[in-house]
Amino acid sequence: MTTSPAPLTPAEPAAVPRSVLLGRHGAVEGEGADAGVAAHYGDPMREQRLLAEGLAVVDLSHRGVVRIAGPDRLTWLHSMTTQELTGLAPRTSRESLVLSPKGHVEHALHLVDDGEALWVTVEPGTAPALVAWLASMRFMLRVEVTDVTDDWAVLGEPIGAESVDGEPLAWVDAWPALVGDTVAYGPVEGHAGEGRAWRELLVPRGDLEAAVGDRPLAGTWAAEALRVSAWRPRLGAETDHRTIPHEVDWLRTAVHLHKGCYRGQETIARVHNLGRPPRRLVFLHLDGSGHVLPEAGSPVEVGGREVGRLTSVARHHEDGPVALAVVKRSVPEDAEFLVDGIAGTQIVVVRG
């Protein structure tokens, strides 16, 4: 079982469409950030194995979809976000972040261009806030920003290849590769996410059933378990209002270190060049002898002292109960964690 991430901001996220695939036999709707789609279809472990084997697909139609048209779209978004986007070729995926002026993560953008428009998928319920902010930054540039969530849906596929002509447009997750001029705060070789193939397929919402076809469906519990086991941060789960990208190793896929100025760049450069992130992401193997797992948001303790919080929890089909947590950088790498009375052995993902 996976605990859904908390809202991205103190404001309530917008309502999300309820998927037609919840009508499938055995579908159990998710909760929290993953409401509106199925958490599972009756057999979460089997679904997870099928997904890991590359056979199943995941309904992610609760994700927001934004379309940015106009000849200035790439240079405009490049100037405001963390990744190099100028000259982005059609059907080439990128991940970029919107930061606050102080460098805190506000939005995570999954981007792919079709040659005429840039398509962006975002966390459920956050598209209206993103569109409103982008609209306020348009000025006199030739761009048009539209929230198309009601008309377009997302399917998650265990495929690592970019889409080609004749296929629906897709965003490919590069995690844990280093994309562009950047750096890793976790391991480069031997990363737990190596070999993980994942992409988000964009399909008209009315064609969702046809896009799934006869492939088995896996729920978000299965997808989240594989994400956690790959140490992959998720906005609203591993992040809070003060998260900077270094703390969760997000520079590796989403931040270009030597591009032009953008909001929050000063924090990115200062922490990278002179300082250390105040917190770090850790992966936990939890004691699975009990039947109940701790909830996301639970305090993480070392020696009776609170040092952080649990961010995501899942049951992995091979590794059992696993979790991600964000803890103080000063916590020793060999410390034993305790979460709601459950012991956790840490694997350090981000090093200070």
Rank of each mutant, 00 (worst) to 15 (best):
G42C: 05
H25C: 10
G64F: 05
A56C: 08
S61P: 12
M1R: 11
V65K: 05
P13T: 06
E31W: 13
T9Y: 14
T3L: 12
T3D: 15
V57T: 10
S19K: 12
G64R: 01
E29N: 10
P71D: 10
P7A: 03
E47V: 00
R18I: 14
E47T: 04
S4G: 13
P5A: 07
A11T: 11
D34C: 09
H40S: 07
V37R: 02
T3W: 15
T9C: 10
A33C: 09
H62D: 13
S61Q: 04
Q48I: 05
T3S: 14
P44A: 00
G70L: 07
I68G: 02
P13K: 07
A14Y: 13
A14I: 09
L74G: 04
G70V: 08
T2G: 11
R46S: 11
G36P: 14
G23R: 12
S19N: 12
A11S: 14
G32F: 10
P10G: 08
D72A: 10
S4H: 15
L50V: 04
S61N: 06
R49S: 09
D43V: 00
A33E: 12
P17E: 01
D59S: 11
E29H: 10
E53L: 06
Y41M: 06
G32M: 09
G23S: 12
V65G: 05
S4N: 15
H40M: 02
V28R: 14
G64D: 08
V57L: 13
D72W: 01
V57I: 05
A39P: 06
G32A: 06
V66I: 06
G32N: 09
A6F: 15
A6D: 15
R18N: 07
L50H: 02
G32H: 08
A14S: 15
S61E: 04
T2V: 12
A38C: 04
V57E: 15
G54Y: 05
Y41I: 09
G64L: 07
V20S: 14
V66N: 12
E53G: 07
P17G: 06
E47K: 07
D34I: 11
V16R: 07
T2Q: 14
G64H: 02
